[in-house]
Design a protein around this nucleic acid. Structure first.
Lengths: 125, 125
DNA sequence: ATTTCATATGAACAAATATTCATATGAAAT
DNA sequence: ATTTCATATGAATATTTGTTCATATGAAAT
């Protein structure tokens, strides 16, 4: 009796498919994994950082080089490099005053390529 | 003379490697592609949307089901579904009052998998 | 030692974004 | 026709996030 409908307080509507919800719930990855996944994509979700990563695909570069290339402030670039560093997407080496940044992840290119496939797929209406 | 150093107004430092900058500049994709790429990843860069997409990996669901599953407001889910719809990541079909959402992109899973590879890679210190 | 210069960083500000709340829409049932 | 209910949506709010500005750091050159 009433197997298919349940009332939850959190939602302002009556559930239609309890069985589906329960089944899907079990198939969901852990909260933490989902959070981490969103965190990486958040890092990729900014034009400046995407540009920096693409630049580093081509060559290791110092902060100032990147700033000139992207026509942005040294400070802005430095802040974004910190984000990329924390996400362990880039690494660096120091040479005197100059700090050279380079890619620290072989998967970035593949992730980007998949993203581009999505774009081109959706654009050919 | 002075082939390796140039002064640009936009950057508050003296460029070190003009040759590198010029070379990298040529290898950069078009501004528009980079923008579009960042836009998709921005969509993936939110826990709620990631959860919705994972739920839809498992099964087509109506808005209310998703709200209950994720323990969130129907309104919040509806707003996020709109974002996913605009990014053409989900599609829907109506059946009376109920609207069923499902995945509209075969690449999402692959993009997520690449992201997860990055996570697990980086977590094994 | 002092100056110079590349980079890093904290605080402030502006812009973007997620959620909530109230309400609209529209289809089915009464 | 009116009510009910699933979903959509606009406005308001709260939070996050990117850039700027001023300044700190630290290494090399003077």
């Amino acid at each position: 009796m009433n197997e298919n409908k349940v009332d939850f307080e959190r939602c302002d509507c009556t559930v239609i498919h309890e069985a589906v919800v329960n089944s899907v719930r079990e198939s969901m990855p852990h909260e933490e994994s989902l959070y981490d996944l969103a965190e990486i994509f958040k890092v990729f979700g900014d034009t400046t950082r995407i540009k920096i990563l693409y630049a580093l695909f081509a060559s290791e570069m110092c902060v100032c080089d990147i700033a000139v290339l992207l026509n942005m402030t040294q400070s802005a670039i430095s802040h974004q490099l910190r984000v990329l560093k924390q996400a362990r997407l880039v690494k660096y080496r120091k040479e005197g005053k100059v700090v050279y940044y380079s890619l620290d992840d072989e998967h970035v290119k593949q992730i980007f390529d998949q993203g581009l496939i999505h774009i081109t797929e959706k654009n050919k209406i």
